[in-house]
Amino acid sequence: MAINCTVNKKKVSLDIDPNTPLLWALRDHLSLLGTKYGCGIAQCGACTVWVNGEPTRSCVLPISAVSNAQITTIEGLDPAGKHPVQMAWDELDVPQCGYCQAGQIMTAAGLLKKNPQPTDQEIVDGMSGNICRCGTYHRIQEAVKLASKKSKK
């Protein structure tokens, strides 16, 4: 039986193995390639998307669990790149290789949605589940702070 859900405000129907992790449904069946595979075991955060507004590791979440859910991927955050987190990421020149950044951004935007004015420590704690092999951590933390300021205005 097909799984119906909403991805980036569009209704989609997935008639595939219900055990398929959401990550592979997005990438291989919906051609949404912005969400990245990094480890497949929810350790690195590269695959982070929002499920009903909650940052979630899509690599271990079967699509059977997202029936009727609202899913937001990096492509749906703001396609024009005007979300304060995206703007801050560009302004502070965060990306090096860029591969982990979709997951970082979805985690950061989720953090700010819940806690618009996080303390420095809350930013560090909130972002430490996402690995960046290039070591862009300082700028990630600064960019979350900048995005928080931008949202305040």
Partner: peptide
């Protein structure tokens, strides 16, 4: 490439 990265191209 920043803008393409942050929009998931």
């Amino acid at each position: 490439d920043n803008k393409n990265v942050v929009t998931g191209k």
